[in-house]
Design a protein around this nucleic acid. Structure first.
Length: 853
RNA sequence: GCGGGCGUGGCGGAAUUGGUAGACGCGCUGGAUUUAGGUUCCAGUGGGCUUUCCCGUGAAGGUUCGAGUCCUUUCGCCCGCACCA
């Protein structure tokens, strides 16, 4: 038992945390120093939606960011670490109706509650930069940016089949539909043909894809997900010529139907031609013919396929012959035109050349409707190959296969291309595309799966789209000097009132001609608000612009961005697009907003289940803060697992964290008792145990610092524990009177400093009370260390014989290979007895491996 | 189907470039302090005939003086996208 325990003040987390919470706020300690000449570091956590109080996921997210921010401050950076709220959104409307209040009131109340919890957790935010997206100061600039995009042709309106969520009563963007269901409420989405507002994100598809390579600090899987979502395909557009009802080709543009294909090499295998049910002009082809009824049936049937069924991928294919034919521009074949419900209308051209021999879907369709299957790519060991390799054999137009052949091989039955290799980017493909281009019937083309971003929402609690519908002038933007279009905060949602029914809102005059006009009553997708908030933080009070170029350039890009994987596509893709678009408007000079991305894992309950209100298994942060304090909460969260991994909540781990803080607290106080002037440390005069502690201090500090840089808090904390253990061992073996005053001062300061980013309250208290320092520990520098100082005079090396561990032996530090080998051979004498050492591999300071015969 | 990731003690997890597997913590066992519980401190804790011997990183091969780490095959689990021509 330690000899001075009675003198050490108890660790009273609640009192300490209350005290420093107030003090930091009064000092405004975490404000950015705008005059600083220090290098900047921008640490950002994804801002929350204020749906109530913070949960464990938030606590984890912000603790990670806060530890990074506090440590960066101590390492000498000018740190921008702001917070705000993604405050618009549908849950506020639903809650307002449920609680008979207003969306604004509910939102503001929740934000206040969340802010109180953030303060209680000790997060070091620059509160002067607080951003709330529902504030007119903020959304004004969202409208301004919208109009700038509009000016540049990046905003447009289009009537199109769109995703409609019947529960949320609004349309959704493609990114907001998962397996046919609404991302927010999980309802099955419906297709509706509506005129809506779009942002032309596809204009940036290629750059969004290419620049993923500029993001080595992003998780590979997130980049992969974005690349898949953008979905670039290289291929060719090929023009087919439609025949009239009598089978005569229709010359000119009238008769041209273009398809996109990645497999131009398979054009000779094309035995039928498909149009999507939504293909424009489809019904004109069959109107008044005997095929009209059959086609109409497929078109109507397709409307009833839900996106959920589609997502299952097991749908039976339906189709109908249109009675028409097209001429294949390469083979010259006349092939029948069908409508098929597996053709997607908004990818490529909505028309497809079917190649049943090599495409599983076309194969299924051909089997079902008894259409010919012409083999055109065969491997050379295929029984058919000999017959078909030189165009001499009998033409084969049907096969007995059970499924399409997707193997590599050579082209057969392909005219002059026969014998070339087939496949994507193959010899055959290149030759055919070259000939198409020469003939003017085709060209190279690239398609993306990425669709334009549908941003209008038929909802109230959002940023109003700043547009006016005038009978005479069409749709015109609200003049910039009239922004923002203010969102009324007094709608009676309980009575079902919407913006479209709010006369005070929508009645206006046309800014061009002055005639009475109607204001647009759709609001913007909330993801538009979150696509640029990180820029507003750099200049939050600007009344002339969303942010100044100087401020943005000073802090951007965000160095460390921390948030959940659920935004891998949505928010992160939209934000990348906004950054690029704003760059092209000359508003800032970076290409990418977030240099390093950390996707933190989820916090599950003790059984590994997701915490949710409906399950009733939510562990609120208060359940830890109240008994143990915020420092324990923070330490437990960071120590239990690496930040990017999911972890199951474990009350025992919380107790362990609390135990460590108390232990560190006690050790620091004990060290402080004998602490003198750390600067007077004389390494030569240190006793053996003191020297050991001294070395351990350099070793653990090096490890800890490196782990902070890697964002590996769990191992950084392990290193801190080792340092505390080393200090404890020193105290246990050396009586107080004999302890080195400089060393104890140094190590006490070390422990407090390295733990400070993680347990800020306890460390700030120790800094003042135990160490007697003036000023905050966060204005003090990070401890200096030298990994070379950790080296002992002697090191233990491993001795292996033929790769098997046989002994461990001490050798002088820096011993050369000969010395190491001699020591090793002596240590394993009995294992090498009677054998010859033919080779010795010596890894300095680590091991010797003896190869014997 | 396509793409990505992961398999290490009773548990969470270490091992940064191939070089002493299991750091650190939880739990457990024993001891000290204590009236007791709690706290704290000390020691131990991968498995195996308990003895300096063998086996051990999902499984099987391979490369290497040496493999948790690299290669091939395979099994199991997780995530993302999905009728994208």
């Amino acid at each position: 038992m330690c000899d001075h325990a009675h003198e050490i003040p108890a660790y009273d987390a609640q009192a300490i945390e209350e005290k420093w919470m107030k003090s930091w706020e009064e000092q405004n300690l975490f404000a950015v120093d705008t005059d600083s000449t220090k290098p900047k570091k921008y640490v950002l956590e994804m801002f929350p939606y204020p749906s109530g109080d913070l949960h464990m996921g938030h606590a984890r997210n912000y603790t990670i960011g806060d530890a990074m921010a506090r440590q960066a401050r101590m390492r000498g950076y000018d740190v921008l670490h702001p917070i705000g709220f993604d405050a618009f959104g549908l849950p506020a409307e639903n809650a307002a109706i449920k609680h008979n209040t207003q969306a604004a009131a509910w939102t503001y109340k929740n934000m206040d509650q969340a802010l109180a919890t953030m303060k209680r957790m000790g997060f070091s935010y620059d509160m002067d930069r607080l951003v709330k997206t529902c504030s007119p100061d903020y959304y004004r600039w969202g409208q301004w940016i919208f109009e700038k995009l509009w000016e540049r042709g990046l905003v447009y309106r289009k009537k199109n089949p769109v995703n409609w969520c019947p529960k949320c009563e609004t349309v959704l963007a493609n990114e907001q539909v998962t397996e046919g269901r609404c991302w927010r409420c999980d309802s099955e989405v419906e297709k509706r043909d509506l005129e809506q507002w779009y942002i032309k994100i596809t204009a940036y598809a290629q750059e969004l894809l290419d620049d993923l390579e500029k993001l080595p600090g992003w998780p590979e899987r997130v980049k992969q997900m974005q690349a898949n979502w953008i979905g670039r395909s290289e291929g060719a557009e090929v023009d087919f010529t439609l025949c009239d009802v009598d089978g005569n080709p229709i010359e000119g543009d009238e008769g041209k139907i273009t398809v996109f294909t990645t497999r131009a090499d398979t054009l000779f295998g094309n035995t039928f031609f498909l149009l999507a049910p939504e293909y424009k002009g489809l019904m004109d082809l069959v109107e008044g013919t005997g095929y009209e009824a059959g086609v109409r049936e497929v078109v109507e049937g397709a409307k009833h396929i839900s996106a959920v069924e589609r997502a299952q991928g097991t749908l039976e294919k339906h189709g109908a012959f249109t009675g028409r034919y097209v001429i294949n521009p390469v083979s010259g074949a006349k092939v029948p035109v069908w409508v098929a419900d597996y053709v997607i209308s908004d990818y490529g051209t909505g028309a497809v050349m079917a190649v049943p021999c090599g495409d599983a879907r076309d194969f299924d369709f051909a089997r079902k409707y008894d259409l010919p299957i012409v083999p055109i790519i065969l491997s050379e060991d295929d029984p058919l190959y000999e017959d078909l390799k030189d165009e001499q054999g009998t033409r084969v137009t049907s096969v007995d296969w059970d499924e399409a052949l997707t193997c590599e091989g050579k082209l057969v039955q392909s005219g002059k291309y026969t014998g070339m290799t087939g496949g994507k980017h193959s010899e055959g493909e290149a030759a055919i595309v070259a000939d198409l281009e020469a003939a003017g019937t085709g060209k190279r083309s690239v398609q993306y799966r990425l669709r334009d971003w549908l941003i209008s929402r038929q909802r109230y609690w959002g940023n109003p789209i700043p547009a006016i519908h005038c009978e005479h002038c069409g749709i015109v933007p609200v003049p910039a000097d009239q922004l923002p279009v203010m969102l009324p905060e007094n709608l009676d949602l309980t009575a079902g009132e919407t913006l479209a029914e709010c006369r005070d809102f929508y009645e206006t005059t046309c800014p061009v001609c002055g005639a009475p006009a109607r204001r647009e009553t759709d609001t913007m997708d909330t993801f538009t608000c979150s696509s640029w908030y990180y820029l507003r933080y750099t200049d939050p009070h600007n009344t002339e612009l969303p942010f100044s170029r100087e401020a943005a350039n000073r802090f951007m890009p965000v160095d460390n961005y921390i948030g959940g994987i659920e935004h891998a596509i949505l928010h992160l893709l939209y934000s990348r697009f906004f950054t690029k678009a704003l760059r092209d408007m000359g508003l800032l000079d970076v290409d990418e907003p977030f240099t390093n991305l950390l996707c933190q894992g989820m916090v599950k309950d003790e059984n590994g289940d997701t915490m949710s209100k409906s399950r009733g298994n939510v562990v609120p942060p208060s359940s830890v803060i109240e008994p143990f304090g915020a420092d324990t909460m923070r330490l437990a969260i960071l120590f239990i697992a690496p930040p990017e991994k999911d972890f199951d909540w474990d009350p025992k781990a919380v107790e362990g964290a609390n135990r460590f803080i108390k232990r560190a607290w006690r050790i620091v106080w004990q060290l402080a008792e004998t602490a003198g002037d750390a600067a007077s440390l004389d390494k030569v005069a240190l006793s053996k145990p003191a020297l050991e502690l001294y070395r351990e201090r350099h070793r653990t500090l090096a490890k800890c610092t490196e782990d902070f840089d890697r964002g590996q808090f769990n191992t950084a904390i392990s290193a801190m524990m080792e340092l505390v253990n080393a200090a404890s061992a020193y105290i246990n073996v050396v009586p107080a009177a004999e302890r080195d005053a400089a060393l104890t001062a140094l190590v006490a300061c070390d422990i407090v400093s390295v733990l400070a980013p993680i347990c800020p309250f306890a460390c700030e208290e120790l800094w003042h009370a135990a160490l007697g320092r003036e000023g905050s520990v966060y204005t003090a520098p990070w401890p200096e260390f030298d990994a070379a100082e950790a080296a002992a005079d002697e090191v233990e090396i491993a001795v292996q014989v033929l790769g098997k561990m046989r002994a461990r032996v001490m050798v002088p530090a820096g011993a050369d290979a000969a010395v190491m080998q001699a020591a090793a051979e002596a240590a394993v004498a009995k294992h090498i007895e009677g054998k010859t050492v033919v080779k010795a591999i010596c890894v300095p300071g680590k091991l010797v491996n003896l190869v014997v015969k």
